[in-house]
Write a protein that binds this DNA or RNA. Structure first.
Lengths: 206, 206, 206, 206
DNA sequence: CATGAATGAGCATTCATTCAT
DNA sequence: AATGAATGAATGCTCATTCAT
């Protein structure tokens, strides 16, 4: 699981202030972009909005990112990595296949509806329906989806169930929460767990 | 279930060409708009694109629709009505609760991934995250969702399952097909049916 | 003094309803136009606004008037005639030259700031600074200004006062009230009278 | 009396070309805008007209000014300041109250009808009748009008003359020249002086 | 690294006007 | 006399992007 971003900063010895600055700036842009894309969507977010948030002018963003598309891809990639990490962490010490899927669903749902602006960008709202951008985003999700494929491969499912479709239905339902979840009722984690409860055969009860 | 649009065309005797013209133009705009919104999304579709498709100038659209938002709402409303009709039709003569849900899921999925451009607009890609437009669209979907609520109310579900969350998960999974379905493999109808198979308790087997 | 409009309706025997209708429609458009031009100005008033007020569609106005400019000229002409009538009426039985000017100033000011929408159009806000329209409007005012010229010709003024400039200053001051007069304090009539008080030599005191 | 604009250019030593450039561009836009607004009015002037005059594209104006309204307010503000300066300058060494008013009237009239495009914008042709813009413009004029209030306060006027109305009449008459003055006859200065001659009591003769 | 300035293309919308019916 | 439908040109404004400094 790649974690292209931020990881180095965790493990490397602290750099002198001047040296970190560059990296910081990039990170700041990324965060501001995540916040805006997440709140208003790709089209409704302008490069100016993002720049203003970081405290500099539009043109300056282009030193760090080639284009708005590239910026979005970077944010999206970071988000996917974060979600992958969250799910991996939730899986530690869980062994029974259905329990593992449930833990993953809970973690996914929680990450998606938590306060992490990055992850808000991961929803199925692809900014464009076709084109290079779409492909780039799809590629980033692939590794993540593979993780779920593995989880589902271990499930004891009825023979006539297509495991690919199973996976896509599960992830769609989970991602759909982005559109309807509102704080106050069940928690995101509970909502994710209920999905797996609905699917788990009686014979695989906990 | 209202069918605000296209109804007259179904039941009325064919009108002489001159009389139909007015209705045709509006309908043509609606169809072109559906095509574009569906293919490229709300933001990426310009009024000019739509006008060009119908063969007239931008300004002329405004004789028929007050604004881009209003046009989208009209398309969306028509789409929701079409889906409702499709599901209603699929329910005729089906009586067992789980069979009814399965029929509805199949019809929904088929409508969504068929060649009807209108329906392509119904997916969870709300063009805006907040605002009047969003509310208008949500209102149009309400009647439709109520239909599914009724279907689910009749299901014999485990006591600890929240039926609201059940409905939202089902519809999210179904709508999610818009993002991944590609012709060639299983049909949309089969995909919709598999979702219900996954959920149907062994005791309620067909 | 011409009163191009409405006069016929006063003196002619009442026409049968159907026959009057045409004339009424024109008159209704004129009144709606006066109301809008007066309240919002020429540019900010659209033909649609006016049409809507009369209860029909834009295109229909063009049966009665050739263009927006022509409509404005018609309104303006009617307004000038109304003011001329008001001033003429105020002059009856007033004989002393300075008293005559004062009566005229009071009448002008009252007409201008009264509730007659037509007159609201007479202010120095020429909709355009150059062009045919401007000339047409200026021509309509000529007869009116001539009236004031006659009034001023009779005044016993210092030899070094240019009577043309005198007239223009007086009318400018009077018209200027349109920009600052607000009901509540002195009446328009009193304001008009004060202007003449300011100008009247001590020896010509009342 | 502030002179927000152009001041630096008067007193500072000439800047090297590169340094002036930024200020020049803004100034150029301001001047082109003044020219157009003054000649054709607010509504009839398009941002494209102004941009073309400066030699760049519409969008570029928006780097310097937030909106058409803001641009107009800037031009108007500069104009009011220029007039205030002109009047102030004309008042130096003039002491007798009526002479001071006469000097001010002459300066005002001269500025208004001179070749300064900025000032052409100050006339009572408010581009809009209501709204924020109107308020902004009114505020800019306030300081200017206060100057005239002070001048009039010192005048020895008949007790029954309302000094506020006096001021408004004087300024209206002066501003009215914008609508009728044409070069060739009396100079603007003479025209302004005549207004005060007309008002000056015989006992206050020069 | 970041700014200031500008580009150029695009966008939703408005509006006076026309004209066949 | 009036309508419905459309035109075509313009308008204010936004935005991703570029680039010399």
């Amino acid at each position: 699981m790649k974690t292209r971003l931020a990881k180095a900063a965790d493990t490397d010895p602290p750099l002198p202030v001047e040296d970190t600055k560059g990296r910081n700036r990039r990170q700041q842009i990324l965060e501001a972009a995540a916040r805006h894309f997440s709140a208003r969507g790709f089209h409704a977010t302008s490069m100016r909005d993002i720049a203003a948030d970081v405290g500099f002018l539009v043109g300056s963003i282009y030193y760090h990112f080639d284009s708005k598309d590239a910026l979005f891809v970077a944010v999206h990639g970071a988000a996917v990595d974060m979600m992958a990490n969250a799910v991996q962490a939730a899986l530690i010490d869980v062994v029974a296949p259905w329990d593992r899927l449930e833990a993953a669903a809970a973690a996914h749902c929680e990450a998606l509806n938590g306060d992490n602006a990055f992850v808000g960008v991961v929803t199925p709202i692809f900014p464009v329906t076709v084109g290079e951008l779409r492909n780039a985003l799809a590629a980033q999700r692939d590794a993540y989806e593979t993780m779920f494929m593995a989880l589902i491969a271990e499930l004891d499912l009825d023979a006539n169930i297509d495991r690919n479709i199973f996976r896509l239905h599960v992830l769609s339902a989970l991602n759909g929460t982005k559109f309807w979840y509102r704080p106050g009722g069940k928690t995101p984690s509970e909502i994710g767990r209920q999905l797996v409860s609905m699917l788990r055969p009686a014979t695989a009860a906990r």
